[in-house]
Every structure is written in C-alpha cells, then in structure tokens.
C-alpha cells in the first residue's frame, strides 16, 4: 500500500521554511566563501587563527565561561521552574514569573552595567563584606563577574523554557508511583526526572549556544583574561576591517558548537527525544 503524503501542512509551511533556510544557508555560505577567499584564496585565515595564542586562549575562555554559566542556570533555574509548575498559582510564584519576564525584556547592556555598579569597589556587595570584617575583595574584571553577568542574562531564558517543558509532564504519574509505595524523593527521581530530561538538555543547550556569542558582558565585567571569541571577531571587523579572519573565526565557532551540542545530546538524551 502506498503511504499517503499529507500535502496541506507541507504547502502551508513552505514559504516560512524557504525564508528560514534562505536566511540561514545563504549567509553561512557567504561566510564560508569569504573565510577562504579574503584576502586571498586558501586556508590562510584558518592557519592564522589556529596557530594564534590569542585565539586559542579566547576559544578556551569562551567554552569554559559558557559551560560555567549553563551550570549556574541549571542549578538556580531548575528548582524555580519546578516551583512554577507545582505552585504557579501562589502569589509569590506569580511575582517570580513577572520578574522573570521583566528581566528577560531588559537589555543586556543595562544588566551588565548594573552588575558593574553592584560588584564595584563602591558597590553594596563590597560594603557588606567590609562591614562584616572580610575586607574589600576584587569582584570585578575576573571570571566570577562575567559568570554572574552571564547567568543573570541567561537564567530567565532557561527557566521559562524549562517551565514550558515541565508543565507538559503529567504529574499524576508521580502520584501514582507514590500510591504504589514509592517515597516522594524516589518517585521524583525515577519517574519525574527521566521525563524532564529532554527539557533540561534542550534548555541547557539553548543557553549554552547563546552564551558562546556573548559580547557586552565580558567586555564590561571581564578583564583581559576573560576575552571571548565574539570580542575578537568584533575587533577583526571594526578595527581591522578583516572580514576573512572574522568569517573564519565565526565558522570555526559554529562548527565547534554544533559538534559539542551533538555530542552532549547523544550522551544525555534518550534516542526517542534526540531530535524532538
């Protein structure tokens, strides 16, 4: 028997798909072309980047700061998303939801600058540590400040996305497990957590990819040791007009992040949910 193709949804999706593919594949194609033709044909841009200590350092910095920011989001955001799902009607959780959405809508520059003032030597945090007799720690221009700024930016995105995914889990399954004699913690761990895993991995992957492209936060809150790849790309474009090096860096970042994501998803996701 011939399989019937449902043409209507395909046709309906066609214009949107064409726009999406066109706006992604064409620019990426131009990017790759530019990276091997500007200033001359060949792989010289890639050779320069791979052998440059500054780029190597920035690549490593980008990866570990992004990883740390994702970890921060998972540790802080997961319980919040769970609380929103289980007790969303509570007045406190309504306020939390409003705060999440509001901070999601605030510009990254404003939020980074707010941390600049908060963590500064004249800021409230240092005032508190000083009053407690702990001295005046240097909180700005290091990895700590950048990670704080990144987590603050990414947390609403992660939490709201996870909330959407956790909400679709049928909590009756946990209740059923408890009815069959499982302790609450055991039921959560063996029933709820496996069902939540795709949401956790998808949320984590999304904020990781966003973190890789961070620019304003490390520039304002970090020191020279916290230079990320996007800052080097901006320097190549704005200061040197070197589109070839910028394109090559961007393409390497794209390939590296896709490979990393595929690996992480292969390890952490069940087969059925891998592309869902």
């Amino acid at each position: 028997m011939r399989r019937r193709v449902d043409w209507l949804p395909l046709l309906a999706g066609l214009p949107g798909c064409a726009v999406l593919l066109g706006l992604f594949l064409l620019p990426v194609g131009f990017l790759i072309a530019r990276s091997v033709t500007d200033p001359k044909l060949g792989l010289s841009n890639y050779h320069t980047i791979i052998t440059s200590p500054a780029y190597g350092h920035a690549a490593w910095t980008t990866l570990w700061l992004s990883g740390a920011a994702v970890l921060g989001c998972v540790l802080l955001g997961t319980p919040v998303a769970y609380a929103l799902v289980r007790a969303g009607d509570h007045p406190v959780m309504r306020v939390v939801m409003a705060v999440l959405i509001l901070s999601f809508l605030t510009s990254s520059l404003v939020r980074a600058y707010a941390w600049f003032l908060m963590l500064g030597t004249q800021g409230p945090v240092v005032a508190v540590t000083n009053a407690l007799g702990l001295g005046k720690p240097q909180l700005l221009f290091n990895s700590f400040a950048v990670i704080v700024g990144m987590v603050h930016y990414l947390l609403p995105i992660y939490t709201l996305m996870l909330y959407g995914s956790l909400r679709s889990i049928r909590y009756e399954l946990v209740t059923a497990a408890e009815g069959l004699g499982a302790k609450h913690a055991y039921a959560l761990r063996t029933v709820f957590l496996p069902l939540a895993r795709p949401g956790l991995v998808n949320g984590g992957s999304l904020v990781f990819v966003i973190a890789l492209g961070f620019f304003v936060t490390p520039a304002l809150l970090g020191g020279a040791q916290q230079t990320m790849l996007s800052q080097l790309i901006a320097q190549a474009v704005q200061q040197f007009g070197d589109f070839g090096a910028a394109a090559a860096t961007g393409f390497l970042l794209l390939v590296a992040s896709l490979a990393l994501l595929a690996a992480v998803r292969r390890v952490l996701l069940p087969k059925s949910a891998r592309y869902g």
């Binding site: 440059s52 200590p53 500054a54 920035a58 040791q225 230079t227 200061q239 040197f240």
Partner: peptide
C-alpha cells in the same frame, strides 16, 4: 597588535 594580544592573553 598580534604580539600585544598574545601578551595580553598569556598570564
């Protein structure tokens, strides 16, 4: 600039 950036990135 390349030398300076390398110096800046190293510790």
């Amino acid at each position: 600039t390349q030398r300076f950036n390398a110096w800046l990135g190293g510790s």
